[in-house]
Nucleic acid binder design. Structure first.
Lengths: 204, 204, 204, 204
DNA sequence: TATGAATGAGGATTCATTCAT
DNA sequence: AATGAATGAATCCTCATTCAT
């Protein structure tokens, strides 16, 4: 009988439960008993598979980041043309945040915590830089190289600002509006860069 | 003998210590003993003046918001012209966040916590709407009324995204760069709105 | 009203309870709940006064050592003549161990633990050397200086061996017998040293 | 297929690992996972072969005692003359304790624990009496029968006191010195007994 | 025979809160 | 007004034990 895969399954169960619990109660309210209970497992298993509560939290953050990365790559590959690819990245980041209304809260909780935990901080920075690097890669085909960094940073801030503020509002209508909002702002940024540099752009 | 003002002074001491402690250790690590100890007072005083730990936290968040509001009003009044007033608001929000490198962390901690605490949530929303409302007020003189809401929201997102991402990076050079970044993005947004609406804008 | 002395009293209560509990259940069975419960206090007070369980244990060991030291000094001062002083020291060590039948068990538990705890180890060594030094001091008047160290060490071993083995037997008759046993052995050691060195000794 | 002997081998592995772990970390720090891990086996095997953690500990103590007994018998048989046989017993007890510097710690840990465990206590007492009985047997040829018990007890205390104190000091030079110390004290005891009884002794 | 997954009780520790002074 | 002693619930973690494979 396949005892194989039990470890992966248990880890996934615990991570899923951690996400749900943190989303509902925040990091401060997410005790191991709540998490393990929601997963239908015992608290001891956390130590068994993750050594520590911190181990579970780190794995959880990493899981979230991996999922976001996978989503972004998948959308990116389907997109045709540089502007579409750029928007695919934006879309991946936004849709992922808003897939579940709790997701923004989880993301935010980890962001806040990462400022006081080396392990989480490192994971967080990897993602920070990955988003910037992806954006820059797309922008190289769209604006003058002198503008790439600035515009990439602006778009990254827009994305993070949008989901951050949307955690305060929530709701589906807001989700749709916020996507549109970012897209229009991105267009504005690209247009101004193109105009300023007289660079011939493709139509969006 | 003027024992008047003792209450105000003690409250201020505790709030200041709360901000410093949360900035350094996060909300999860800020125990009453740490806060009171840093203020040079006893833990009992917290109950005396704020009834509760939550009472202290709420007062602390309110204090931060009030300070930000005061700063914004002060800068706003000195500014001449609609675009300058708009930038004054942006500046107020950014400079305040970056006054102290710990400040972003405090702000972030409260934002995360407010998603799980009604009291904090309400305070947070007031500020959320105040920023939007201020931005909208300025924009009415700059862009077509149909665009006001959208641009205001975009700028608000930019502001929050900038300080949020800057909590991960820190440093003075980043602070200066991020101000410039927002200003340029604001210009791009305004220009695109003006062009699109053929509305004659003033020069920035 | 005298709030003074509360701290000393509470510490004494907890230390006393720690000794009783360790004597009854061993270090492995002495939980904070048992200790605090026996003292009629809450577990939280341990942290309040000793910071830690280890803090309590260290204070307890120190307390035992101090008491033994005081006892030894008191008996030593009453004794007349070098041989009597030597026996006063032996008596102090033995009578203290056997005052309470649990005491040997406590002493033994700490000795075993001190091999794995730096803090306890240091305290333990201080006592180890103090006993030797006291014995040497007495012996300088009784045997040739070349023999002092050896005889001191022998007597120290006898003392420790006696109480160690008596932990396995217990009972009052054994206590009395073991005192006599050490005294006779001490006499044998002194006699052999005196004879070997042809040193004129006083009558015991 | 010779699966015979597997049981004995596994038991020996676990016992050996238990001794090493207890020596290093003490009884309080010796978890089954540490012990089994050091033996390269799984925790489940402990239950399989010893039913219990206590079963393993009891077997371990018994193993130590058996080894000591074997060593003593072996040395005893090689010795010629009553005084040499007496010293053979002393040597067996001391050299065994000091074979490994961790050994005293293990012995001490079990001694402390045996005061709170019936099973271990019984094993401990068997050894206690065996040493006494061996010593008495030798002494019957050396001192008056009225002195046998007293001298036997004294020598036993010396032996235990020496290894007990040596656990605090350790080091090879101390080992050698402590053997000499006991031997000289034994001689002093024998001489005083012989003199007191005018019994003609053989030369050692 | 052997593994290691899973459990859950028990321990130390932290902390907000209460209250006598 | 102010202290800090005292509490006890809550949390994380460790660990012996059980059991299915």
């Amino acid at each position: 009988m396949p005892k194989v895969g039990v470890e992966q399954k248990r880890k996934a169960q615990l991570i899923e439960a951690a996400i749900a619990t943190i989303g509902e109660l925040g990091l401060g309210g997410a005790s191991l008993q709540m998490i393990a209970g929601r997963a239908g497992l015992s608290t001891g298993l956390v130590a068994h598979y993750f050594r520590d509560k911190n181990g579970l939290l780190e794995a959880t953050l990493r899981h979230i980041m991996d999922q976001l990365g996978t989503e972004a790559v998948s959308r990116y590959k389907k997109a045709r043309g540089p502007r579409a690819r750029l928007k695919a990245i934006v879309d991946a980041n936004l849709s992922y945040q808003q897939l579940d209304s709790e997701f923004g809260a989880v993301w935010l909780a980890f962001w806040a915590e990462s400022l006081h935990s080396d392990r989480l901080y490192r994971v967080q920075r990897v993602n920070h830089h990955r988003l910037l690097s992806n954006l820059r890669h797309c922008l190289r085909d769209l604006v003058a190289s002198a503008e790439v960094d600035r515009i990439a940073e602006s778009i990254a801030c827009l994305i993070d600002g949008v989901w951050l503020r949307s955690t305060l509002v929530g709701g589906d209508s807001h989700s749709r509006r916020s996507r549109a909002l970012v897209m229009e702002a991105v267009d504005a940024l690209l247009d101004s860069a193109e105009l300023g540099n007289a660079k011939p752009g493709e139509s969006p």
